[in-house]
Simulated assay, not measured.
Amino acid sequence: MVNDDQVRTLDAGALKALAHPLRVRIYDLLSERGPQTASSLATIIGETSGSTSYHLRALAAHQLIREVHDRGTARERWWERPRGRVNFPGPDETMTPASRAAAQIVTSEFLRLRHETLMEYINRPESAQPEGWKDAGLVMTTMLDITPEQMTELKNELSAVVDAAIERYRGQDSQPGTRRVTLRAEVFDLPAAPRRSTRDQE
C-alpha cells in the first residue's frame, strides 16, 4: 500500500480496473466522504448494493481501496480509499491501445466529476452555505505568457504550497468545525494560436 508521503502512479492493471464510470464515481466518493459500505454507496449513486459491492471488490483487487477491518460486521463491510497521493497518467502514445483507452476513460470521468462538483458549488444557494463558509472559497482563472522553464518553476511553487497545506492540516478530520474541502491546482499550456501579423494588429 502507498503511505501518506508516497505518490502512487497507477500501472496498466490498476488503470484498467478503474476504467469504468461507476468505479471512478465510487473511488471519488470514498475520497470525498470517507469510508462507506456497498449499501451507503448504492443509496448515494442510485445503484443496487450488489452492483456497488462487485465494483468495490474489483477496486480492492488492485489496492485502489481497502477494507476497514475494525469497522462493520460480517454482513456489512466498510471500505476506504487509502491515504496518499495517486497519479492518474493521461493517455500517452507509448501506451498499449488498451491502456490508452483505459486512461482516457479514467481521466475523462474524473474531470467530468470535478466539473460537476465545481458547478454545484457555484450554483449552491446562499441559504445552503454553513455559517462562516460563504466567502471562504476561491475560484480563479488567469492567463500568463511564460516559457516552459517558467511554467515548470510555477508548477513547483504551486506543488510546494499544496504539500505544505497537506502537512499543516493533516489529521484534522475529527476536529469540530472542519469540513472536507477540495483543493485544485492546474497550470498547463494552451494550444498555440497563429501569431497575428503587424498589419493584423493595426
Score class of each variant (00 low, 15 high):
A38I: 04
D173S: 12
T141W: 02
D4A: 12
E120F: 00
A165R: 03
W79H: 08
Q129T: 06
R170Q: 13
E67T: 10
D92V: 05
L10W: 05
R179E: 09
R85G: 07
A14K: 07
G84F: 09
D28R: 14
D200Q: 07
E167D: 08
N87G: 08
L56N: 02
A12T: 14
E80A: 12
D92A: 09
S40P: 01
T117Q: 09
L30Q: 06
F88N: 03
F88Y: 15
T94V: 14
G34Q: 05
N3V: 10
D135V: 13
T94H: 04
W79L: 10
P97F: 10
A101Y: 01
Q201W: 07
G13D: 12
E202Y: 08
R81N: 02
G72T: 08
V187C: 15
D163W: 00
G177M: 15
R184N: 15
A165G: 02
G137N: 02
E93L: 12
A98F: 02
T152G: 15
I44K: 09
S53I: 01
S197I: 07
Q150W: 00
Y27A: 10
F188C: 13
H55E: 14
Q6H: 06
P148T: 08
S53H: 10
I122Y: 00
Y169A: 01
E47M: 06
A160N: 00
A164F: 04
N87I: 04
D92F: 03
